[in-house]
Amino acid sequence: MLLNQFLILGAVLFCIGVYGVLARKNAVMVLMSIELMLNAVNINMVVFGVQHEVVSGQVFALFIIAVAAAEVGVGLAIVLLLYRNQTSIDVEDFDLMKG
């Protein structure tokens, strides 16, 4: 197996995730796309761990999974709060920072 086949898979998924984050209107879908990006990074962690024969790669993949879980929890709570206050979760509706 080539090292690159895993890395390229990760890169493709990451870019798809970037597209999702930038293009989707629904805030929940934005969060899902962020999960996709985090998973793309995880693949790199694990495959480099295998490549260098260290266990740290897997350990950090696990840490990323934990951080992602925390991120989803807080992120969804924020989305719920937005929905409750503005009755909308369309990210394009929120432009309070407009200059």
Binding site: V91, E92, F94, D95, L96, K98, G99
Partner: peptide, 18 residues
């Protein structure tokens, strides 16, 4: 001039960032 970039929309900032 720069004011027009500050749309306040998070995705525009994201596009600029990435």
């Amino acid at each position: 001039g720069l004011r027009t970039i500050q749309s306040g929309k998070v995705q525009n900032y994201g596009q600029l960032l990435f």
